[in-house]
Structures are given as structure tokens and as C-alpha cells.
Design a protein around this nucleic acid. Structure first.
Length: 955
RNA sequence: GGGUGCUUAGCUCAGCGGUAGAGCGCCGCCCUUACAAGGCGAUGGUCGUAGGUUCGAUCCCUACAGCACCCA
């Protein structure tokens, strides 16, 4: 083995071997365990959030595979309708073309080409993370099979009356020219103005003043509303206003939506461009007036002079004209919430358009069939409320249920070309025909079409197809094998439906609505099953200061840069490449030069994964500190070197197990510790506490195996007791081999690499080979081994007590050495006084180890009453461990050290006495707590006695 | 306005009704034959504030403050 851990060398060779072994595919044996990968955008790249999430999934998948489950990690990508279309449109823009220049078919052809070019980027990056996924079943939401599922769901829901087409107010992105979901809209606080405008009452000298942040929309006003109990305006309700600039007459209406105390208490109502106003308009049966085109320019419903103006130019023109008329009462600065499209950053314009919706809100249809709330929404709510689906951490279920309780119908149509085209046709009379294809649509119709049929131009929301992921990827709705475009079988519902429900969904909280809820709806409706039993909501990865990672801040990290390392200049270049604003570029460059003056060191995949695990508590954010990752690279190196030590000390050939079990206490102790560690690990896998899991293994490897067992093995290996030496060699190997398997799900590469170096053909490893791999001629892989279980190991509490005693003695001597500045290499005399018979036995047993590890001469007992030289002392129970002062130690310093220790213990004793002296404590506290307190005070008093005796001896 | 979190060592975070912890950093001594990406040792916190419950509160309850995020 190399002298130190070199991640790049070992990572490169294992992934292909693993994949080629077939172990990533379901074994066909054991209980099914399935994880669905949240499909990333096909043209995306891997970011820290993906890397974290995928590490979590991979740990679970590898662990359960080693535990003998029939494991499937279902992977794939989604077509990301808007994002992908926009990328290709941007490419066309460079050629000074639009998608309309190409036409629909040629454009879609071009998107496919781009998908073929860039679609494997993210899946290849996943392989670098070590993702043990079944690539032979990789799917894409636009695959023929998944598209068939989309069509079937649309048609079935339509025929069940649960999908409808309607003219509704939707969030319209005027830049992209499509409706977007309310989930794709961010409300952003912006500085704006509040304008007060006077509306004259018709046939009177009176007037009203309305306040608005969007004065241009007055062109579409249909009313002014006041609160029904607002006395100031009661006499005007029912009267008519003359709408300035248009000359139209509009009524004053009363509606308790209005807040009397906000502004003037009068609200202009523009139903065609505001969601609240739309609702009021419907209540009062006021037809909306649309005043904008789909490109957010003023349309022909407005007075001629404003027509064709962009909405913001129209605002200026309206204000100028109102001012001229003396109707602009006030202008003041105002902070307002502006709806912004996540996809284009354009300000959303609510628009009345024809769209397709999934009904999620009606209880009963007019013909008596169940409405969407009963058929789709409530089953999805019940799945979580009943506990059938559990969120981890649990409180996210509140987020889920509250959203579903207040859900709106789902607008599923998008005015895009890239996506699943809606399987609906219109005849010349406007009748709708829905079906698999035109023929099916005709055949299923109850009326004869008038003239020719024309297919709907729109496509479905990408999330519509993602909602079907839990069952469409398993082959539904076909009932036999499903092939991909290369003719390979990728799914077979008949067999694969055993993977539904999947075990756990690992995903971010930000898509609980987008995706999680919709998967539950669709899966419940179409299969009658829940899509997954648990939902683990992973934390959001932020930078070391807790800031959100963003390219314009320059605090993003590319997981591959952490794995491979990157020099400063290339890092600056790639971080600023896509930034167009010079000030932002300069800021980002400055930050990167400050944060990473030497670039980013290569820490390797294993250390990155361990870091993610160690940070994965139930907290909702994790702050990624590169320093922490470097620490875990050191851990990998520690493990590596421990393995080197073990291998250096192993003989050639078979390593036989000692016939009567481990010979030494140290061996029985480390095996006990291993057993308990594995017990914790098992619990932490169940509770998804990867931080505690990582910590338990970290502490075992470093603080127990390396710090104590390896050190204790040195005197044993070099000692005279041949049986102890042989047994110790075996235990060194057994524990190392076990802990490698235990660590494999977290750090797969290094564990596979070291494991291969072990004498795997020995009886030791053969017994851990799973039944599924009986072929001994095949090169064994750790990833196919059984996961170590607590019951594979025997606890020995007596041995543990012995070693704890030994550690206390050794730590006492070390403390004296360190505090008295005795050089570590210098051998010192060691005397022992007092103590009981147990101490005598233990000293005899551990004499060699103590002398070796503490660098002392052989221990000498001082008889009771005999003269003692002045010495520094460590106290273990009643035993005094003495280092003579002569020539080594400063008497005054030792006295001061003792006094400090005595003081500390006196404080502890006072605390105990305080508790035990309190009658109500003794009366009310549980008996074992009182007993524990009595034990403590005894122990402290024993130690105190020994320390005082020692202080007295020093004079 | 509704909801959900968070506040513990210099930093990042665990923890928990009964002796306050880890990693990193800092300080001291060591290149001791697995590992200087290391070893040994030390320092460091009245657990956001104020009340309450309790024999006992960092932990449970209430209020408040500050900081995040989600929804309207």
C-alpha cells in the first residue's frame, strides 16, 4: 500500500468494476427496497445539493443491499420543459433566430440534439459521487414509455371529469409567453410607489380616492370597492364613477375584502389582472376587461393613445395624463411584493387565458361523480394524516397537509413546444376530443366532430410527468416488458411493481408541493398505493457562513472541484464565466481570491461523502465548511494507515482464529466496542441520523481502534506470549475487516480498495461472503458482502472494565509527563502504592503494556508504611500511581497541580452533598438517581483521600 | 397576517429532566519504527432574556428578543 491515502488513484478504478459486476441491479432475492432518484434536469449539472442528497441515497442503498434487501435505485432525468427550451432558444438567439423561424418540428428536433449532447453530463457526475444506481433502468420523462403513462393519466382523468379546460386567470410569464404554476412564482419585495388617484362620482361634485401600486391597470377597472361598514362611503355604494382617461362608467360596490384602514379604504377592481380583484369581480358578476396582450403591451380595449405601449411605459403615460387632469392626488414611496417568474425573472402578469386544469377542489361533479377533492386531494392528505407516509423530520408533514388543505386547481398546460403535447383535439365548432391519438379521440367522442380536427398546441407541465415517476418508471401502464430506444428492457410492471411503494424518498423541502404531493396524488389514484413509506427531507446546503449559495455571490462550490481540487486561476475563470454584469464579476473574483488564495485542495469523493454524512442532522440547513471536509480526509488517511499497520503485521497465508476465542483483554474489549458501535449505527440508519452514524464510526476507528487497540497490539505482537500475538493479529484483521464493511456505505472507494488488500481468500472473509455470491472464482467485492451486525460479535464487560482501568492509569501517567514537561522519549521510573488486590492483579497483567506505552521502567510496588520518595501522582480509585520527582519534577509545581485537582474534586463533592442533603431530592428522585449520586460521592471521596494522602507525603 | 425552525466553546454543530460534548481553530511538548493529513496534553461555555412547572431545567411550559425560511 502507498504510504498515504491518495483518493484520485483509488477512485478511478472501482466504479466501472462495481457497475460491471451487476451488483447495482436488483438481486431478485430478499425484501424489496427501492429509492427513487428525484430526476434532475436532463441538461443540468451537479451541484452541492445534488451531491448531498445523492450521498444520502447511496448510503441507504448500499447499506440495504449489504443487508440482503432486493435493492433498486431507480434513476433518470426529467425534460425540464421551460429550462431546456430556454437554453435552446438562447442558442438560437446567437444565430439571430427564434423558435418560430425553425417551426415546431425542427425546433423539437434541435432540443433532442441538445439533450443527446448534454444529457449525460449530470449522470456521469453522479458516478463520480459513487452513486450505486441501476443505470440499466435509467429513464427520461420524454421516453416513449413514460410518455404513454402521461397520455393515459391525462385521458383517464379527463374522462373521469377531473381534468377540464377553462378560461381562468393564471400566472402569465410575458417574456416566455407561457402560463407558469403559482409555485414557479416568487414574491419579491421591491421599492415602488403608492399612487392616489381621484375618481369623480358621475353626476355629482363628489369623488373617491383610490390607492394603487399599478396605476396603468386602471384602464381595466370595472368597479371601486369599499367596506360594507365604512360609513364614509356608505352613501356612494351603488352609485357610478366616471373612470378617468377612459370615460367608462363603473359602479361603487361593497365587499368585506376591503381593509377600511388601509390607504383611503377604496380599492380599484381590475379583475383581468389581479387575483383578488378577479374573485371580487366574480362575486359581483362584473365581467373582466383584459387590457394587455400576451406580451404585456396595452391592447385594443384601452383608449387608443395607450395601445401598443409596454405596461411600464403605459404606467408613465397614465400618470402624466392624470397629473395633467389634476386627478393624481399623491405619490409616495412604497415597498411592494412583486410576483417574479422563477424561470425568466420577468414580472408575472395575471392573464385570462384558456388553460387545462386538474380539479383538486370540487367535492362532487354536476353529474354526481366525485370531484377532484374527493378523488385526488383527500386520499393524498389521508396518506400522511393516517401515518401511512411518514415525513422525517416529522414536522414537515404540517407543511404538506396545510398546503393540501388550501390547494387550488392545478394549471397543467404550458405554452411551450418542448414537452408532452396535450392529447386533445378541437373541431371547427370548438368541441374537445381527447384520446391517445386523433383516431382514438374521434372514436371515444360522443358527438361527431364538425370539420377537421386540430391538436392542442400546448404541452403539459413537466411536473405532470414527474408526478407519475413512482409507477411509470416501473413500466406502468404497459403490463409487459418496456424497452428503451436501444431495444433494452428497462422495466416490466408485472415484476417490478414489487418496488411500489418505495422505501423512502430523499428530497428537498422546496419540492414538497411541486413533486411530493403530486406523486402521492397520482400514485394513490392510479395504483391505489402510496408511492413511498417515508419522505426524508434533506437539509439545504449553504456556505460556511450560512449564506445561500449563489453564482452572483461567488460562494458556490462545485462538488467535483472538491473531489479533484482546482487551482485558483481556473476557479476564478469558471466562477465568473457566466456573469455578465462587470461589477458582479469583480465582486465574485475578489471573494474567490480571498476565500481560496491557494485554490481548493482535492479531498476526494470519500471525504466529501463523509462530510455530508457528518453534517446530516435533522437541521434544515447545513453550512458546508471546507475545513470540515479536510478533517474527514484526514480520517480517511487515518483509516488507510491503520490498514497499513495491520497488513505489515500479518503473516503470509491463512490467519487462523484462536480456538478458544480472543486471548487478550484488549481484543475482547475492542470487539465489545465494535458490537456497541454497530448497534448505534443500525439505529442511526433507521432514524436517518447520518451525523451520529458517522460520528459513531469515526470515534470507533480513531479513538478506540487506532488510539488504543493498535497501540495495545504493539506490545502484544512483540511480546513473548506467542498465543497472544497470534490472537491479536487475527483480531486486528477481524475488526479492520468489519469496520471496512460498516463504513462502506459512507466511504465506498477507500473501503473497497483496502478490503481488496486484505487476505480475502482466508476463512475470515469467506464466511462473510453472501449466499448470492457462491462463486469463489469471482473476485469478491466489499459492496456485495454482508453488513456487519451487532450479534456477530460478543460483548465482554469484564474485559471492558479491565481496559478502562488501564486507560485511566495510562492517561494519568501521560498527564504527569505532559504537565511536568518530561520529554515523551525519556523513560521514567514508576512506583505504585495502596490500591486493592484487583489493582495488583491488573498491574501484573498489564505491566508490559504500561511500560511500553507510557515509556516507564517496570512498575515497583511500595509496601504499606514504607518510605516513599517525593513523587507526582495519578489516582485511580485507591491506587496511587507515582512518578518519582528526583531529577524530573518540580516539587512546587506538583504541589500546585495536586491542590488544583483537590479543589476541583471538593467542588464536585459539594455538589453531591447539596443534592443528598436535600430531603425532597432523596424522597422524590428515582432510587437509581439517588444511588448514582451516592456512588459518585463515594468515588470522589476515595480519590480525594488518595490525593490528600499524596499531598501530605509531599509535605 | 398564518406557519415552521433556529439561538450551546473563537467557528460549524450535536446533545439532553440528573457530572455540558464533537470536529475545526487556538496554546504547550514531541518528526516515538501505521499515520506531522500524526501523537500526547491543556485552555475554553452562568446553553439568547425573563418568568413558570419540578426534588432538580441547557432540556418541558409561557412570554419576550434576535435570526432564518415557507405560505398569503
Amino acid at each position: 500500500m502507498e504510504k498515504s491515502f491518495e483518493p484520485a488513484q483509488i477512485e478511478s478504478k472501482w466504479y466501472e468494476r462495481w457497475e460491471a459486476s451487476g451488483a447495482f441491479q436488483p438481486s431478485g432475492k430478499g425484501e424489496p427496497y427501492c429509492i427513487l432518484l428525484p430526476p434532475p434536469n436532463v441538461t443540468g449539472t451537479l451541484h452541492m445539493g445534488h451531491a448531498f442528497q445523492q450521498t444520502v441515497m447511496d448510503m441507504l442503498v448500499r447499506y440495504h443491499r449489504m443487508r440482503g434487501f432486493n435493492t433498486l435505485w431507480q434513476v433518470g432525468t426529467d425534460h425540464a420543459g421551460i429550462a431546456t427550451q430556454k437554453i435552446v432558444e438562447n442558442q438560437l438567439a446567437v444565430e439571430e433566430k427564434t423558435r418560430h423561424d425553425l417551426g415546431r418540428d425542427a425546433f423539437i428536433e434541435r432540443v433532442w440534439t441538445w439533450k443527446e449532447e448534454s444529457g449525460s453530463t449530470i449522470t456521469n457526475q453522479m458516478r463520480r459521487i459513487g452513486a450505486a444506481a441501476d443505470w440499466s433502468r435509467e429513464r427520461f420523462t420524454m421516453d416513449e414509455g413514460l410518455s404513454a403513462a402521461v397520455r393515459k393519466v391525462f385521458i383517464d382523468w379527463y374522462r373521469a371529469g377531473l381534468i377540464y379546460r377553462g378560461n381562468r386567470l393564471v400566472n402569465w410569464d410575458p417574456l416566455l409567453g407561457t402560463a407558469v404554476s403559482d409555485l414557479e412564482v416568487n414574491n419579491v419585495e421591491r421599492d415602488g410607489h403608492m399612487w392616489s388617484i381621484r375618481y369623480p362620482v358621475a353626476g355629482s361634485d363628489e369623488s373617491l380616492v383610490v390607492a394603487t401600486t399599478r396605476p396603468e391597470t386602471m384602464l381595466g377597472d370595472v368597479a371601486v370597492a369599499v367596506h360594507p361598514e365604512d360609513e364614509r362611503y356608505a352613501h356612494l355604494v351603488g352609485k357610478t364613477l366616471r373612470l378617468p382617461l377612459t370615460g367608462r362608467e363603473i359602479p361603487v360596490i361593497a365587499d368585506d375584502y376591503v381593509d377600511k384602514d388601509f390607504g383611503t379604504g377604496c380599492v380599484k377592481i381590475t379583475p383581468a389582472h389581479d387575483f383578488n380583484d378577479y374573485a371580487i369581480g366574480q362575486r359581483h358578476k362584473l365581467p373582466p376587461i383584459t387590457i394587455f396582450t400576451l406580451g404585456a403591451k396595452v391592447n385594443d380595449n384601452a383608449p387608443e393613445k395607450y395601445r401598443g405601449l409596454d405596461r411600464y411605459d403605459a404606467r408613465k403615460a397614465v400618470l402624466v395624463d392624470l397629473e395633467a387632469l389634476g386627478l393624481l392626488v399623491e405619490t409616495k414611496p412604497h415597498k411592494l411584493q412583486v410576483p417574479v417568474s422563477q424561470r425568466s425573472d420577468a414580472v408575472i402578469e395575471p392573464m385570462l387565458t384558456d388553460q387545462w386544469f386538474v380539479d383538486l377542489t370540487s367535492d362532487v361533479q354536476t353529474d354526481g361523480r366525485p370531484g377532484g377533492r374527493k378523488a385526488i386531494t383527500e386520499p393524498a392528505l389521508d396518506a400522511v394524516r393516517s401515518g401511512e407516509i411518514k415525513f422525517v423530520p416529522e414536522n414537515w408533514s404540517t407543511t404538506y397537509t396545510q398546503w393540501l388543505d388550501n390547494i387550488q386547481d392545478w394549471c397543467i398546460s404550458r405554452q411551450l413546444w418542448w414537452g408532452h403535447r396535450i392529447p386533445a383535439w378541437y373541431d371547427e365548432a370548438g368541441n374537445i376530443f381527447v384520446g391517445e391519438d386523433e383516431a382514438d379521440a374521434r372514436a371515444s367522442a360522443s358527438v361527431a366532430p364538425v370539420g377537421t380536427l386540430r391538436q392542442d398546441d400546448d404541452v403539459l407541465d413537466t411536473w405532470f410527468s414527474s408526478a407519475l415517476w413512482p409507477f411509470s418508471t416501473l413500466g406502468w401502464p404497459a403490463d409487459g416488458p418496456v424497452q428503451n430506444e436501444r431495444g433494452e428492457v428497462v422495466a416490466n410492471w408485472e415484476q417490478d411493481k414489487i418496488f411500489l411503494p418505495s422505501a423512502v424518498l430523499v428530497t428537498g423541502f422546496d419540492i414538497i408541493f411541486f413533486w411530493v404531493a403530486r406523486m402521492v396524488m397520482a400514485t394513490k389514484y392510479f395504483t391505489g398505493q402510496i408511492p413511498f413509506r417515508e419522505v426524508y427531507i434533506n437539509a439545504i446546503v449553504r456556505d460556511a457562513e450560512g449564506q445561500k449559495m449563489s453564482k452572483s455571490k461567488g460562494n458556490t462550490l462545485d462538488p467535483l472541484d472538491l473531489i479533484d481540487g482546482i487551482a485558483l486561476e481556473p476557479l476564478v475563470e469558471k466562477s465568473t464565466r457566466s456573469l455578465l454584469i462587470p461589477q458582479v464579476r469583480a465582486k465574485v473574483e475578489k471573494r474567490i481570491r480571498k476565500d481560496y488564495p491557494d485554490g481548493i485542495p482535492a479531498i476526494g469523493t470519500d471525504a466529501l461523502r463523509f462530510t455530508f454524512a457528518a453534517l446530516a442532522s435533522y437541521s434544515r440547513t447545513i453550512n458546508f465548511d471546507i475545513k470540515r471536509a479536510e478533517g474527514y480526509k484526514a480520517f480517511c488517511n487515518k483509516l488507510w494507515n491503520a490498514a497499513r499497520f495491520v497488513l505489515m503485521n500479518l503473516p503470509e497465508g491463512e490467519i487462523a482464529a484462536p480456538v478458544d476465542g480472543p486471548v487478550t483483554e484488549a481484543e475482547r474489549w475492542i470487539i465489545t466496542r465494535l458490537k456497541y458501535t454497530l448497534d448505534y449505527v443500525e439505529q442511526h440508519f433507521v432514524s436517518y441520523r447520518f451525523d451520529q452514524l458517522a460520528q459513531a464510526l469515526y470515534e470507533f476507528v480513531w479513538n478506540e481502534y487506532c488510539d488504543w487497540f493498535l497501540e495495545l497490539s504493539k506490545p502484544a505482537l512483540n511480546g513473548d506470549d506467542a498465543a497472544a500475538a497470534a490472537s491479536t493479529r487475527h483480531t486486528l484483521l477481524v475488526v479492520l475487516e468489519s469496520v471496512l464493511r460498516a463504513l462502506h456505505p459512507v466511504i465506498p472507494f477507500i473501503t473497497e480498495e483496502i478490503w481488496r488488500e486484505l487476505p480475502v481468500r482466508s476463512s475470515l472473509s469467506a464466511k462473510n461472503r453472501p449466499a448470492s455470491m457462491p462463486d469463489s472464482s469471482k473476485e469478491p467485492l466489499i459492496l456485495e458482502c454482508n453488513y456487519p451486525r451487532p450479534n456477530d460479535y460478543v460483548a465482554d464487560d469484564t474485559a471492558t472494565a479491565e481496559i478502562e482501568w488501564f486507560k485511566a492509569v495510562l492517561s494519568g501517567i501521560r498527564r504527569i509527563r505532559s504537565e511536568m514537561n518530561i520529554p515523551p522519549g525519556k523513560a521514567i521510573p514508576l512506583l505504585l502504592a495502596d490500591g486493592d488486590s484487583g489493582d495488583r492483579t491488573r498491574v501484573a497483567k498489564f505491566a508490559t503494556q504500561i511500560a511500553f506505552l507510557a515509556r516507564t521502567e517496570a512498575p515497583q510496588w511500595i509496601g504499606a508504611g514504607a518510605d516513599e520518595p517525593a513523587a507526582a501522582a495519578a489516582v485511580v480509585g485507591t491506587l496511587r500511581v507515582l512518578i518519582p520527582l528526583a531529577g524530573l519534577i518540580d516539587l512546587a509545581a506538583e504541589k500546585a497541580r495536586l491542590a488544583k485537582e483537590i479543589g476541583r474534586i471538593e467542588v464536585e463533592i459539594k455538589k453531591c452533598e447539596g443534592k443528598l442533603g436535600n430531603a425532597s431530592f432523596v424522597a422524590n428522585a428515582p432510587a437509581e438517581v439517588v444511588a448514582q449520586e451516592r456512588q459518585r460521592i463515594n468515588d470522589w471521596n476515595t480519590t480525594l483521600g488518595a490525593l490528600r494522602e499524596q499531598a501530605q507525603k509531599l509535605g
